[in-house]
Design a protein around this nucleic acid. Structure first.
Length: 851
RNA sequence: GCCCUCGUGGUGGAAUUGGUAGACACAAAGGACUUAAAAUCCUUGCCGCUUGCGGAGUGCCGGUUCGAGUCCGGCCGAGGGCACCA
């Protein structure tokens, strides 16, 4: 019998065209069926799709296909997060207009996604850089302004004094600008903020309702929001009637306080504004950078002032006051008290400036006389010591007690605060959504009237001059007020691109609605997203911003939505070996060949050093182009590979062996399909053969269902291998009447369709004569048919496996024990010893404890 | 530095609630078929002893338990995030 090989390049195309033409994956407009909203994080159109995209969208596609087969009306859309910095960089480097560069990339990437056969409803495609998307966003901005959730304040940015431009954190390398190499300084600009802190308590509390989110993401968000009860505490300045207000979350350590640290631009700095030493210090602080990481890592510096403050609870005790580089005016009150014994940062500072270190918390199991703090602060719980009225309390009790005392004496007030800061949304860049605001001659902000939206980006811009092209534009920012006729100036800052991605999931519900961002009817039906899938790198910012923005824009409307994402799944990255040539330059894997375990450059024949497997990135060149692989092996093999072996939440290693293994498996499905098509099934099966067939297929249905529901796609893959290997073996035995091949294979095809839809559809059509596998029903299974009539019971002696017992299920404990004691090896162990305990786990295990 | 996660054979990994560690796959070695190759199929796969059995064993050290890859404490290593990359 001659079998034709499966040819993916022909078959993939055939089905992709069929699905497209018949709009098979279009979400139904009618809202009578139960809905399922499956969403993967939309891509930034950076050029071509990468393996990370392939993995992300394959995971989502399995779910979308599966839910369709289970009878849901599935919304599985795709769009483009198409505003952002890389487009501006491309504009400067390649002299391309950001819009042309972006639209080009979208076209390429869309065609690549189509090659993978994803079941996407392309009629709902959106792109955030289109004004029919961002005009709604501008409306939301104005809504939020009305609701009092937007405001302006001064804040620091990374300023490159040579390029005269604001730099992103990633563009600052070792404190220097990435292009100019100039020392970056902190500059104050007046910027727009969303008042995310107004929702801090709710964002924190309702994490508990998200029971389909990974625990680790919820913990990260909780820590990020950082709700803590503390207090504001006033320190009187000696010989002055002013006071310094500090905020602290550790008022219980007040008796260990040994200094006060102020932000360099704290109001008290006025006294030093002509002091050259202070000004030098201030400049040095401004070089530190304003990321948490930079502040945590740089050496703690202080500038001692002449101020001294009085300790509120210790008579005549005074504390020195420093300006410092680790306290920022933007957080809290811009002032803290330092308790070196119980805060590492304070301890480093105290050791540097030779300040007192008084321990006030004694760890459990330690004697006060032995307890010393040298280079490591103690931040744990314990018993309070050296603290007057707080002695012997725990940290928690001490906090409550001291706050009471502080309030009683009017030294300060209890305060719940959050680590979370308001969301700065102003960006001094061109390729983003314009902020719909104008300014009059006094600098007063005037919202753009809604009927004048959208404020469109001008297209005639150039990047030759440094700075924001919108600001440089000859006339774009000049505008006449439609009410007063006054000359006004447009806001030239654009919105942070995180705003674009904070509501796109709502837009998908009503993507063709030109009047509003989304309609309440649509959102009522489709929201929340049932399953959201994306990279864990978005665990905090994107997800938290989306949770906030959804709350903010639906607040006080007829449909208040709190949580946009019911289920969340965070996938791992795609990794690949790294290659370097003799000069230490990165080399693309496709240019490397292997001979006898050694690696060479295909072109130059240089020896290649193989590095560890790392997350695929363009800079390290350890990337594999999905399109090349699809051309070679077909869409199903690529999909199968990214689902195989590694669990979806973990990193996956790309390997050439792996993909060719997947290709072989796809071919094997085809071979078996052809064989089954050609066998004649005789109706001669006896009861046992039928029940064996039923058992196997029911078991497969159960296992695949369970593993899809629980995102164990790699295990589902293993179960498919097992099952197909079994079919193959039976077919090769050449006794076709042994099992129900046709029935079993038919169910197998439905089960595997979500994973590899092209070959499943093709085999289905060939064997069963129609194209409709995509509307067949997910098979059910019967627990009764799966049940084994013989089971293996493990016999342990003192917790170690010593024998197995073949037994009927559900027997009495006593009977099982007696049978165990008859087993040869058990006899050997037990003889001459006393049995002191017997444990029985039903139908599973017996443990006999002997002595 | 801070927060979070992960660590199992030569490799990727499985083990659903604390109950047979290594399913399934890749690689390797041997074999079958073939003039040959490819493809396909079969076998093997830690250490010790003659099929069976015993021992060690899930990054390291310790604990809880009849029983720990799984729970707890400490350490080591890798990865993600740290508010203007997306």
């Amino acid at each position: 019998m001659h079998l034709e090989k499966f040819n993916p390049s022909v078959v993939d195309k055939k089905w992709q065209e069929y699905w497209d033409k018949n709009k098979v994956f279009q979400a139904s407009k009618s809202k009578d069926k139960p809905k399922y909203y499956c969403l993967e994080m939309f891509p930034y159109p950076s050029g071509k799709i990468h393996m990370g995209h392939v993995r992300n969208y394959t995971l989502g596609d399995v779910i979308a296909n599966y839910k369709r087969l289970r009878g849901f009306n599935v919304l599985h859309p795709m769009g483009w997060d198409s505003f952002g910095m890389p487009a501006e960089n491309a504009a400067m480097q390649k002299k391309l207009h950001p819009k042309d560069w972006t639209l080009n990339n979208i076209e390429t990437m869309k065609s690549q996604l189509k090659l993978l056969g994803f079941s996407i409803d392309w009629d709902r495609e959106i792109s955030t850089c289109n004004d029919d998307y961002y005009k709604h966003q501008q409306k939301f901005f104005l809504d939020l302004l009305k609701k009092g959730l937007v405001y302006k304040k001064e804040s620091l940015v990374n300023w490159d004094p040579v390029d005269n431009t604001v730099l992103a954190n990633e563009q600052v390398i070792d404190g220097k600008g990435w292009r100019s190499g100039a020392q970056v300084i902190q500059k104050k600009l007046s910027q727009w903020f969303f008042k995310i802190t107004a929702f801090a308590d709710d964002l924190d509390a309702s994490l508990n309702t998200l029971n389909e989110w990974p625990e680790k993401v919820k913990i990260m968000q909780k820590n990020w929001i950082g709700k803590s009860v503390g207090c504001e505490l006033n320190f009187e300045i000696k010989d002055d009637n002013k006071k310094i207000t500090v905020f602290t979350t550790r008022p219980d350590t007040i008796f260990g306080a040994s200094f006060i640290a102020l932000a360099v631009d704290h109001p008290l700095s006025k006294k030093y504004e002509n002091d050259e030493k202070y000004l030098d210090f201030k400049e040095a602080c401004y070089k530190t950078g304003n990321t948490d990481e930079a502040i945590a890592k740089t050496e703690k510096l202080g500038f001692k002032t002449d101020f001294e403050v009085l300790h509120p609870f210790i008579k005549d005790k005074t504390l020195p006051v420093f300006f410092s580089n680790f306290v920022l005016m933007e957080y809290g009150t811009g002032a803290i008290f330092g308790c070196p014994a119980h805060d590492q940062r304070d301890l480093d500072f105290a050791n540097k400036y030779k300040l007192e270190v008084t321990p006030v918390i004694l760890p459990k199991d330690q004697k006060a006389s032995d307890f010393k703090i040298e280079n490591e602060a103690y931040t744990g719980d314990g018993k309070i010591i050296n603290s007057d009225f707080l002695n012997n309390f725990s940290v928690k009790e001490g906090k409550a007690k001291v706050i009471k005392e502080i309030e009683k004496n009017k030294f300060g007030t209890a305060k719940t605060t959050f680590r979370l800061r308001d969301w700065g949304i102003s960006r001094q860049r061109y390729w983003g959504c314009p902020i719909p605001v104008m300014y009059d001659e006094k600098g007063e902000a005037i919202p753009v009237p809604e009927n004048e939206l959208p404020v469109k980006l001008p297209e005639d811009i150039n990047f030759d001059k440094p700075g924001n092209p919108l600001d440089q534009h000859p006339n774009w920012k000049k505008v006449k007020c439609s009410k007063t006729g006054k000359e006004l100036i447009r806001e030239t800052d654009t919105l942070d691109t995180f705003v674009d991605s904070s509501w796109y999931f709502l837009r998908f519900c009503s993507s063709n609605n030109s009047k509003e961002g989304f309609s309440i009817d649509d959102a009522k039906y489709w929201m929340p997203v049932d399953q959201y899938i994306g990279g864990v790198e978005h665990a905090i910012l994107h997800l938290l911003y989306s949770r906030f923005f959804t709350r903010a824009i639906t607040k006080d409307t007829n449909l208040e939505i709190k949580e946009p994402f019911k289920g969340l799944f965070t996938q791992g990255m795609v990794c690949h070996k790294t290659f370097k040539n003799e000069k230490g330059e990165w080399v693309f894997p496709e240019d490397v060949i292997e001979e006898n375990g050694k690696y060479f450059d295909k072109n130059s024949k240089e020896t290649i050093k193989v590095g560890p497997s790392e997350s695929m990135s363009k800079s390290k060149k350890n990337v594999v182009d999905p399109q090349t692989v699809i051309n070679l092996y077909g869409a199903d093999a690529v999909r199968w590979f990214v689902l195989s072996d590694s669990p979806p939440e973990r990193d996956i290693q790309w390997s050439d062996e792996g993909i060719s293994g997947s290709y072989k498996f796809i071919q094997k499905i085809w071979t078996i399909s052809e064989m089954i098509q050609n066998i004649e099934e005789k109706n001669k099966l006896n009861d046992e053969e039928i029940s064996q067939s039923e058992k196997l297929i029911n078991k497969l249905v159960k296992e695949i269902t369970y593993n899809i529901e629980n995102f164990h796609f790699n295990v589902a893959v293993a179960k498919f291998y097992e099952f197909l290997n079994f079919l193959s073996k039976k077919l090769h035995e050449n006794k076709s009447e042994k099992i129900l091949f046709k029935k079993m294979f038919k169910e197998f095809l439905v089960l595997i369709y979500p994973f590899t839809p092209h070959i499943a559809s093709e085999c289905w059509e060939k064997n069963y004569g129609n194209k409709e596998i995509h509307i067949s029903a997910w098979p059910a299974y019967d627990e009764k048919l799966i049940k084994e009539d013989k089971i293996n019971i493990v016999i342990q002696i003192n917790g170690k496996k010593r024998a197995l017992l073949d037994a009927e299920p559900d027997q009495s404990e006593e009977k099982i024990f007696n049978e165990c004691l008859e087993v040869e090896n058990v006899k050997n162990f037990v003889s001459g010893k006393n049995i002191i305990k017997k444990i029985y786990v039903k139908n599973k295990l017996v443990n006999i404890v002997i002595k």
